[in-house]
Write a protein that binds this DNA or RNA. Sequence first.
DNA 1: CGGCACGTTGACGCTAATCAAGGGGAGTGG
DNA 2: CCACTCCCCTTGATTAGCGTCAACGTGCCG
Lengths: 239, 239
Amino acid sequence: MALKRQQKPEWLCRKCPSGRGSLCGALMRGETEEQCPVRQISHSAAPDEVIYSRQAPADDVFAVCQGWALRFVQLSDGRRQNLAVLLPGDLCIAALFHERLHFSVEAITELRITRFSCADVKKRVLGNARMLELLGKACAAEQRDIDERAVDLGRRTAEERVMGLMLSLVNRISGHRLLPNQHHAFPLLQRHIADLTGLTHVHVSRVMAEFRNAGIMTLSKGLLTIANPTEVEKIARLT
Amino acid sequence: MALKRQQKPEWLCRKCPSGRGSLCGALMRGETEEQCPVRQISHSAAPDEVIYSRQAPADDVFAVCQGWALRFVQLSDGRRQNLAVLLPGDLCIAALFHERLHFSVEAITELRITRFSCADVKKRVLGNARMLELLGKACAAEQRDIDERAVDLGRRTAEERVMGLMLSLVNRISGHRLLPNQHHAFPLLQRHIADLTGLTHVHVSRVMAEFRNAGIMTLSKGLLTIANPTEVEKIARLT
DNA sequence: CGGCACGTTGACGCTAATCAAGGGGAGTGG
DNA sequence: CCACTCCCCTTGATTAGCGTCAACGTGCCG
């Protein structure tokens, strides 16, 4: 199953080819710039593999090049909360200024990341207004996302949370135009969704069944199909 | 009542006097540094006054000098989630790299803040490794706090959430040593606590009554008394 | 005095958790 | 090839936690 998830889609980065305007791209090019090289190293992980662990000191930050990952916290009694989904092109810069991580990171699909030396990133950002701006924007986006998650968890119903999550992810992977009955490669399992939305996988199953029966959207075998975008927006996007 | 809350304690900044190692202090001193002045302006607000509004473009960031504030989101149907409590010495730097805010900020007590020009802060950070480090650490602390809130909201019981909130706040205001039966000036009302923990004020009242009856802690008229620190830690700090 | 905000308490109901059983697909080993 | 296991999903029955509604007490203020 895990292997199946990995094999079909490529999960490639949409930002790398174009490159402009992304911190991730700027850092990668940064390696070759003579005045401020950024040491970097590519790394792969298998589905469900934990690549960063809470409490571990990390002296690099990373960008996702291919595949999906999760930032999460697991309590000692087993309760787990997923904080964010990391897609290709996303940076996880929390480690830049933390001495110890307060979260872990786990691969959902087969994953390829690039690790950048913290010290080098800081050095490179320091003299470079554009880099600082990109770094700041990345932080801001990360904060916006987690703030939105907190609002979901605190004040929205199960339906709204699930729908909001799906919609935000589809928007991120498909570039903001969603057509009826379009298929999207979507590797999150119901247990991932449950831990993102603060629900149990049983209840996620019920909510998804409800959406399916209402002809709104279907998630099956790694494929998400949105039949009724209008309805999706209506349920998800109460601002 | 609102006035009462404001009058008794001073809510002064513990960081300003000492000054070292805080971004807030560094920015304030930054005004007088000839090469990189940071324009700043002091500002006051009354209890319950909204000082930043969602969707508004902000071209300054601010530090809390005196009083308590809340960062929050309010949905169009009235549901509200408080994202963070801002104490004296805290910076709210989210606006630095957001073009529009996705949250609002409201005074809890009588409030004094200092606003710093975004452009000046960026300029000042750009050339100064120590400032960059301080800014990064401030961001990291902000992220850590909201991540912890998300875990609370998603995966902890009402008792754990309330206790965790109280404990984290007491730690922040009292500098990490809590003695039995010590009183702490504590301006949060039950409705603030409810919107921080994702509960209703009715349920917060029940939870607080439970703690009070168990002889663990009491909150009354702006005074928080922790009778049994051990028990507080036990309930709150399941990592 | 009346009005209002805050807190408290009780009765009731709903949302989502828990417990449990079973189906289906994929991989494994005989 | 089939039996077996494991993981993921589904569905039903029951329960618990928290929300909702409502009433009331208190302190403050006009």
